[in-house]
Every structure is written in C-alpha cells, then in structure tokens.
Design a protein around this nucleic acid. Structure first.
Length: 840
RNA sequence: GCCGGGAUGGCGGAAUUGGUAGACGCACGGGACUCAAAAUCCCGCGUUGGCGACAACGUGGGGGUUCGAUUCCCCCUCCCGGCACCA
C-alpha cells in the first residue's frame, strides 16, 4: 500500500476492473428485486458540464447504494442527440450536424467513464440513430391512424429577413437573433398530439405519485389547469351570431362592461375589413414573439372594434374590443371583461376609460336592511383608487355577497351566484357550465433539419399517408451542408421526392421534423429493450418499468416530465407496456450556479469539470458535488471547497495506511471495551443508521458525508495500538469505506482490498447497525427556563418524568430564577431531549 | 404578468415530526514542525458588552399563533427556475 493517495492509479484500475468484469451489465434474470435508476440523458453539447457531474453522481450514488442493498440494478446512459445547437454549430464550423454530434458523443462518453459511473454501457442509445427513431416514426403513424395526431394551423415566430421560423430562444427583444429583423407571428399548418385527450388522467394520476416532490406535482397540476367555469354567449348586435367566451367567474357576469377578443379572433378580422386603423392595430399585435412570457408582460393595448354585443342576462349593450392580453390559444380566444373583479380587466378599463361596475362586496353580516337596499344608480364610474379596487378583486371571501342591484341575484354568495347565473344562461340557451383545461395540444412539427423526419407522405390523390412500417425508418440524410437559411432536406429532391405508399403515384415527403421532446418522451422504455429490432419495446420493458428512481434537473419539472408521462400512457394504450406511470420516484436536482445564475455556455460562466477530474480525480469531484449542497437545491459553485474534499480523502487514506502498518486485524465483534471505545462504537453505529437513512429515504448526501467526517474526527482522537483498540479501529474503517463507497467508489474499492485482503467491496453488503452498541446508559437533557437554554442535565436512561421535573428545578441555573415571588407555572418534558421550566 | 422554489456567520451549508440555531466543510487568525516555504498537526472563530463568570441580541423585512418558531399562519422585499419552438 502506498503512503500517498494515488488517485490516478486507483481510479484507472477500478474503472478497468469494472469494464473487464462487466460489473454493471444489467440482466433480467435475477431473483433480486429490480431497481431501475435513470438519470436524464445529456444533450451532446461538446463537453460535460457541472450540471452533468451533479446529475450523474446523484444517480450513481443511488444505484450503487441499492446494489449494496441487494437490488438488481440497471443504470443506463444515452444521448438526446437531435436539436438546435447542432445546427448552429454546423453553420459556425462549416460541418454537418451529425458529424459534430457523433464527435461530441465520443468525447463526452470518455468523460462520463472517467467519472466512474456504474453504467451499463451495453444499453447505450443515441436518439439520432435510425434504429432508435424508426420506432417513434412507427408510433407516430399508429397515433395518426387513431386520430391522436392531427394537423391544424398554429402560430410561429417568423423572421421576414431570413425567411425562416425561429425558436423562442432565437427571438431576442422581439428581433431575430441573426438578422435583427422584427419578428412576426405567422400561421402555418403543423401536426399536433392530442395530449388534451389525456388531460384528466394526467391530472388524476399525479395523486398516485407519492415518490414525486410536491412542488413538481403542483406545477404540473397548475399547468394542466383544470378549471370550472361557464361558456357565455353574447349575441352580436346586427349579426345573426353570438360571441362565445369562457369564464371561470360567471358569478361576476353582472359586472361585465365590455368584451375583448384576441387579435387573431374571427370577429377581429371581420371588424377590420372596413376599418384600416383596426387592421393596422391587429397587424401590430401580430408583431413580436409568440412566447407567453412576452405576451403577458407586454404593455396592455387595445382598440374598439365598433361592434357591440348584448349582455345575455340584462340586455345591456357592451362594446367589443381587441386586446393584446387575450390569448387565442386558451378558451375561446375571447373574454368577458369585469374590471371591478379582475386585475387585468381593471388595468385595461382604466387605461381606455371603460366603465367599472362593482357587483360583489365584502359584507360581514348580511342584514335584512342590506338585502332590501338598492344602489343609487346602475352605472357608476370609479377611477384610480387602486387600494379600493384591489380589495374587490383580490377577495373571494365566503362573506362576499352579490350587491349588484340586478334582480334575483342580489345577496348571493360567489358559489350561489355561479350556479344561479349558469342555470339562467342555460335556460336562455346562451351558455352552460364547462370544465376547461389550460393544457393545450402539443405541436410537434419543427421546420428544422436536425430532427426525426415526420413519417408522412403527401399524395395529391390520397392525401396525408403515414409511411408503412416496412418502409421505416424514413432516414434523415446526414451528409448535408448547412447554409443557415432553412432546412437542407426542404431543398433536397432526393429526400422529398417519393411515391405514395397507397396508390404508388408521385408524392412528396413531409420535410418538417419532430420536436426533440418526442425522442426524450420514451427513451426510458427503450433502454429496457435497447437491441429489439422488431418492436419499439419488448417484454423486457415490463420487467424494468416503471423507472424506480428518475433523477434530473428541476427545469424539466413540467414539459419533459409531462410529455414522458403522456407517452407512457400512449404506449400502454397501444399495448406495448403495462404500467400507468413511467417514474415511481423523482429527484429533481437544483441548478449549478455561478455568480448567481445558471452555468451555461451562453452566459460564459462555466467551470470545466475535466480540470477538476484531472487535478483531483473523480472521487474528489464526486465528493465535492455531493457535499456542497443538498441535491434538490441550487448549488453555488465555489472553487474553494474542492480542496477540502480532496483533503478528507487524503486523511481517510492516511488513516487506513497508518492502521495497517501494524498488519491486518479482524474487526471487533465481542469483548469488554473502555468507555472511550464504547462511545466510538456508539457513534459508528449511529452513523451507519443515519447514512443509510440519508441515502435511501432522505437523499441527503451532504449530511451523510458530514456525519462520516464527524466519525473520522472522533476516530482520529483514539490513540491506542492494543488489539481491542485496533479491532474497533478496523471496524470503524471498514464501515466508513462501505458507507462512502457509493459516493467515492474508486478509493473505497482500493482501501477495502487493503483492509480485507482477498475480498472485493463489490461483493460486500450494506452494513447493518449493531443495536446493542447503540444503547446509551444516560440521557443528556437540555434544560430551558421560559424557552431559553440555561443548562444541561444528565440522567440515567428511563428516568421517570416526575423525577426529571424535580431534578430540573433543583439545578442552580433554574432555581436562581425562583426569586422575588416567581414560581413554577409549568414544566414541559420532551422525552430524551428537553425540559422547559415556565416561570413567572 | 402567471405558476413553482429559495433567503440562516466572511462563504457553502446543518438543525429529519414545533424542542440546544450555526453540525460538517471552506476562508480567516494564532501556535507546533521547518533554515525557510509548502504540506501536515493543534487551538480559536455569529454580533455586541464584560478581565471573566456571564448577559443581551441574532435565521431577508413586518405582524401573529405557542411554554417554545429557521420550522406553522398572514403581509411584503429580493433572487432563482418554468411559461408550451433551448434542452
């Protein structure tokens, strides 16, 4: 054994050993319970970043821990290989996206291996591989045939100078990132997946996901956004038609003073026909990006259409406005505006001088006098008393009642008014109750090159024809030149010219590709059937699924995780898999930040993990990442601290080295021990218990490490070299090595071989705490007076409560407060912990 | 704008179910070893007052519940993530 910690040698040695022995190759033939641990696969951007190191270390710690706990573990790895950055890099470097991607994969794979991950590399997949995307093309055609994929027009960001569709990311302050041109909204036909058909199940099944963080489930619930409201129809004056709106607040209908439609709404288009100013305004609304954040933060703009509608209940004439804050994609693309009880309507009404009419008020006691009261006038204009208005729209208190003069609704609560108004609307055939989802169908078409080709052929006589399985995959040509304007396959007749699979006539291929979320929505199932060449997934998927532990960034809390849940249900419903949900337990890791913001290439604040690994080794890198912060919180990068992790490993190495200088010895099992050694064993077994709980239940790796550090600090204070001391020291070191091995596997494999010659740590089980060593003879109580710490009290184990109370008030640090007529009011005893003497 | 999360010493963080605030590590200060430095080891380290014993204050800000609040409730500020074409 070397005196110094030779991290380079032992890490290389361990990694060679795992590869040679196929230590992490997973098999379906095992009598152990299975444990499928999945980390979100990386986009092959070029080099590993700290977020990867953090993500994959967490997954590896959990995998290795469960392997030691006796599970049949599978931990796979692959590449989310399609995407926009490859196209950008290809343009910049004058190369093909495929070449760039494959080179990145090679490099990053080497880096991942250097991290010492217990990954089954036999199952590696890359989503840009035709063997992979063939099957999602097949699924696409199946869903298309079932009507779960359909075509409709929808709005994209259009760069009028480059003549290309832009991603939201490519729109900077309303301008195209390359051309600098003002971005326009443009409607184009695209394919959509009917995720809304699964909205109810996606919502309800969240309740089954006990292993998911509450915050993620809340975000998904809000995203799906089931609401209970009403359709309300406003007859359009002078036309034989109604304007339909959806509202979650029909109880406030009597306060509606105008209606507003989105710029894209048919009524807006109609009104603009003879109104050039309105047409200009609508054109102005169509400028800027389609991103909701941009729309929602834009200054409120609107214009009167000159059209009027009739209020369905009171017959009032209400103006129709076009407003930029009304979203075409939600509800009906039109809203009834109740400025008195909606903040956005209020702001808009104030800006454009529209009437504001309060219909609810907060009434503590609703007296007969109030019920009979009648307001002074039907219309009252209130202006600019922000505070007053905020009270009105913020409150939906149970004590609110409808105070509008409007006939029979007077005096009703919110819920009563909701029901009464809904009933009346239904009677008049001008509305009805409706539940509505905020969730929209998922547009999967992308007008980009580096993605999976959509397997549809357009035939002049047959229409849209899905490509039959026998003709799949539709292979994306990889040897292309990127010129920065449009997708190469859109200009490549050898790609798009084809024959119709139905009639055999001349036809053209779809040249749009799929959203890359499509690939990442089912990869978890493919790992289980990675080499299946006659089906998307086979029976092995039903062995491994659902994923027992999924680990990945919190930024994926909504979109990716929702789409993957959706795909799981789609695959279930086409008979491929049996489980309802893909991920039983979810750990969302926080961001790795530097200088307060996410480490990213675009921000130029990255720290290269390669340097860390080269200088200190993978174990130090892993230890530091696990120690610096709890996994689900953001981690602020600091260069200092890595040194501390390295120092700890050196100390651990040295402790084993010095211990073994006197030869090997068996770990303590039985025999009398000094108090000092008894206490050390107490701490050891408490630590074993805590670390197991920290890994398994709490996922609190930072505290697991600190408790092992404390144990090592305690061990360092023990000096003897007699057999009893050395056997306890052996017991401590052996267990420390086991406890740390999921986090720092290389050094632990080496140290184990030294501590227990001819034994392999990979065969060792997770240690069990020795309950006998954990029995304490006396209990240390904290004694407070009026909640303030005043001293400590040591009593024999199992001392009666009354005796503890009596002893407490006898202590000097308590009795000194019992002067000037003060007396003990109450004594609170928290068993094995604390005494609080209340004195007054 | 909307949804979700966060804020604790000089810094990262701990306090698991309402029960000792600051574990563990970093940085810093002092000492040992050394010709010297590095490395290593030992001691100290929330703020204020005090020689000291000790006392008061202290978990983003304001209020509340409780014997007791970093933890629960209400209001506010700032920061981070997401907002459907970044992945």
């Amino acid at each position: 054994m070397q005196q110094q910690y030779p991290f380079k040698d032992i890490e290389q040695q361990a990694q060679n050993d795992w590869e040679t022995n196929q230590t992490f190759a997973a098999s379906e033939t095992s009598d152990k319970p299975k444990y499928y641990c999945l980390s979100m696969f990386p986009y092959p951007s070029g080099r590993l970043h700290m977020g990867h190191v953090r993500n994959y270390t967490i997954g590896d710690v959990l995998s290795r821990f469960h392997k030691m706990k006796g599970f049949n573990v599978m931990q796979p790895m692959g590449w989310d290989a399609f995407g926009l950055p490859a196209e950008n890099a290809a343009i910049k470097n004058n190369t093909a996206p495929a070449k760039w991607t494959y080179e990145n994969i090679e490099h990053m794979k080497t880096q991942l291996k250097q991290l010492g991950l217990g990954v089954d590399w036999n199952r590696e997949i890359a989503t840009c591989n035709p063997e992979y995307y063939k099957w999602e093309q097949w699924l696409f055609t199946e869903l298309f045939k079932k009507g779960l994929i359909y075509k409709k027009t929808s709005t994209v960001n259009w760069d009028p100078v480059d003549g290309t569709v832009l991603a939201n990311e490519q729109v900077i302050d309303g301008r195209g990132w390359r051309s600098g041109a003002l971005v326009e909204k443009r409607d184009i036909p695209q394919y959509f997946m009917k995720i809304t058909a699964y909205a109810e199940e996606l919502l309800n099944d969240l309740d089954k996901l006990d292993g998911w963080p509450e915050q993620v489930k809340t975000m998904q619930r809000n995203w799906i956004g089931k609401s209970y409201g009403c359709e309300v129809e406003f007859p359009i004056i002078g036309q034989n038609a109604n304007l339909k709106v959806y509202s979650t607040r029909p109880d406030t209908l009597m306060g509606a003073t105008y209606v507003a439609v989105a710029a894209e709404h048919a009524l807006a288009t109609l009104a603009a026909q003879n109104n050039p100013k309105l047409a200009d305004f609508i054109a102005e609304c169509k400028r800027g990006s389609v991103a909701e954040a941009d729309v929602a933060t834009a200054e409120k703009k609107g214009m009167d259409t000159g059209l009027f509608v009739t209020h369905p209940l009171n017959g009032e004439k209400l103006p129709v406005w076009v407003a930029n804050y009304v979203l075409m994609g939600y509800g009906e693309g039109a809203v009834m505006a109740v400025p008195a009880h909606d903040e956005r309507d209020f702001e808009f009404a104030n800006k454009f001088g529209l009437p504001i009419k309060q219909v609810f008020n907060h009434v503590i006691t609703f007296t007969e006098e109030l019920r009979n009261a009648r307001p002074k006038s039907d219309y009252e204009h209130y202006y600019f008393d922000d505070k007053l208005w905020k009270d009105w729209y913020a409150s939906k208190s149970i004590d609110d009642v409808l105070v509008s003069m409007q006939g029979s609704y007077f005096g009703l609560s919110h819920q009563e008014a909701f029901d009464a108004i809904a009933t009346d609307l239904e009677t008049k055939k001008l509305g009805k109750k409706r539940t509505q989802f905020r969730l929209r169908d998922w547009g999967v078409s992308r007008q980009r090159y580096w993605g999976c080709p959509i397997p549809i052929v357009h035939c002049a006589s047959c229409g849209e024809e899905p490509v039959p399985l026998a003709q799949l995959p539709v292979v994306l040509p990889e040897d292309v030149k990127m010129d920065g304007v449009g997708s190469p396959i859109k200009k490549d007749p050898s790609f798009y010219e084809t024959t119709c699979p139905t009639c055999g006539g001349k036809a053209t291929r779809e040249t749009d590709t799929l959203d890359t979320f499509f690939e990442s929505s089912w990869y978890f199932a493919r790992y289980a059937s990675f080499d299946s060449n006659n089906a998307m997934v086979d029976e092995r998927a039903n062995y491994w699924l659902p994923v027992d532990q999924y680990v990945g960034g919190i930024e994926h809390a909504i979109l990716h995780l929702l789409y993957a849940r959706f795909f799981n249900k789609l695959m279930r419903d086409v008979g491929l898999i049996k489980n309802d949900e893909p991920f039983t337990n979810l750990l969302t890791q926080g961001m790795v930040l530097k200088d307060g913001s996410k480490m990213s290439k675009s921000k130029g604040n990255t720290v290269d993990p390669q340097e860390l690994i080269d200088t200190y080794g993978a174990d130090t890198a892993r230890l530091f990442m696990m120690f610096a912060a709890p996994p689900d919180q953001s981690l602020e990068w600091a260069d200092s601290g890595v040194e501390g992790a390295s120092r700890f490993l050196k100390r651990l190495w040295k402790a084993c080295y010095e211990h073994l200088q006197l030869g090997t010895i068996a770990a303590y099992t039985t025999g009398d021990l000094s108090t000092e050694l008894k206490n050390l064993r107490l701490q050891l077994h408490q630590t074993i218990e805590k670390v197991g709980d920290d890994y398994g239940r709490r996922h609190s790796f930072n505290t697991a490490i600190s408790s092992v550090m404390e144990l090592m600090n305690a061990l360092a204070k023990i000096e003897g070299t007699d057999d009893a001391t050395r056997s306890v020291r052996q017991e401590v070191l052996q267990n420390v090595v086991l406890l740390l091995s999921p986090i720092v596997p290389h050094i632990c494999q080496s140290l184990w071989a030294e501590l227990k010659p001819n034994s392999r740590i990979l065969d060792a089980d997770w240690p069990m705490p020795d309950k006998a060593a954990m029995v304490q003879d006396s209990i240390e109580y904290v004694v407070q007076v009026n909640g303030k710490l005043r001293g400590n009290l040591s009593v024999p184990r199992e001392t009666e409560k009354a005796a503890i109370e009596a002893l407490s008030i006898q202590q000097d640090f308590v009795s000194k407060f019992l002067v000037d007529g003060a007396s003990v009011r109450k004594i609170i005893v928290v068993p094995n912990k604390l005494v609080n003497v209340v004195i007054s």
